[in-house]
Simulated scan of single mutants.
Amino acid sequence: MNKLNLNVIDETSRLRAVILGTAASNGPVPALEDAYDPKSREHILAGTYPTNEDMVIEMEAVNAVFQKYDVKVYRPTHIEDCNQIFTRDIGFVINDVFVKANILPDREEEIEAIQYIIDQINPDKVIRPPEEVHIEGGDVMLHGEYIFVGTYRGEDYADYIIARTNVEAIDWLKKTFPNKKVVSFNLRKDNLDPYNNALHLDCCFQPVGNGKCIIHKNGFLQEEEYQYLVDFFGKENCFEITQEEMYYMNSNIFSIAPDVVISEKNFTRLNTWLRSHGITVEEVPYAEISKQEGLLRCSTLPLIRD
């Protein structure tokens, strides 16, 4: 029965199997007090919160790209009136291990919706961190022997619904994956201003291609931690995005291979840069989904990369 032999060691190797979220029944526009992030809040207030129909079209465009590249696509089972778009939040794979994330409690049923997939994995390879460890997949970035992790170290961690990965998670990753070098980054959090909020590490940084990355300086609270990544990749290999581009989630694209990415069609400057480095850019519309402060990486959970 255990058919799924997981393998993910980085963000860019050739993708073979993935869980893509679904927007089939996202439910009504949330009440303002139920908004999980400042961008959703902004669109609820403006009356521009995305519709199910628009988001389904966007997600099916991504699905079509996966079919084109012969990627095995799993989808969550249907839950009525539940936002099931952002599969990256609910779990992630490190090497051959599936980690069930400890997410916001009222999102627990999202994990149940992918249980049929988890059941196909060797049970010894499925783990869940202890309760005090908060961690979401958007904060976990694999890069060979490294795990880059977004966190928030402030004393006021509990005051931020957008602080999703705590310092306990860093220690847990170090213990659980002793062969990896775990490097953590203190991210800028703002409950109200989406221009000054890095919800997850992938909202201000992501490796792409061969040894390149997309990065936004203001997403990091400590300049030396931002500088660490610039030095790690080399300044000439870093595509610096503006505050505006970060707001529209330019760092949240998704790699199918080192030379193939899925990107939002409006990311003109980024897409031009990617192509100038020999990367094929599969453009999709994803602007509606981005109104919930998540984009392509957030709505995909890679299971197998070569």
Rank of each mutant, 00 (worst) to 15 (best):
N5M: 11
L20Q: 07
A24S: 13
S25A: 15
N26W: 14
P28Q: 08
P28R: 08
L45K: 15
L45W: 04
G47T: 04
Y49R: 02
N52L: 02
M55T: 04
M55R: 10
Y69T: 04
Y74Q: 14
T77D: 15
H78L: 12
H78S: 12
E80K: 15
V93R: 09
V93I: 11
I103K: 08
R107N: 07
E108S: 14
I111Y: 14
P123A: 12
I127L: 12
V133R: 09
I135E: 06
E136Y: 10
M141Y: 03
M141L: 14
R153M: 11
E155T: 05
D156T: 04
A158G: 05
Y160G: 09
A163W: 03
V167R: 08
E168M: 06
T176H: 07
R188M: 11
K189P: 04
A198D: 05
D202R: 06
C203W: 07
F205C: 14
P207W: 04
G209W: 00
K212Y: 09
G219T: 01
F220Q: 06
D231P: 01
C238F: 12
M246T: 03
N250P: 00
A257V: 01
K265Q: 12
K265Y: 07
E282N: 12
K291W: 13
E293T: 01
G294Q: 03
L295W: 00
L295K: 05
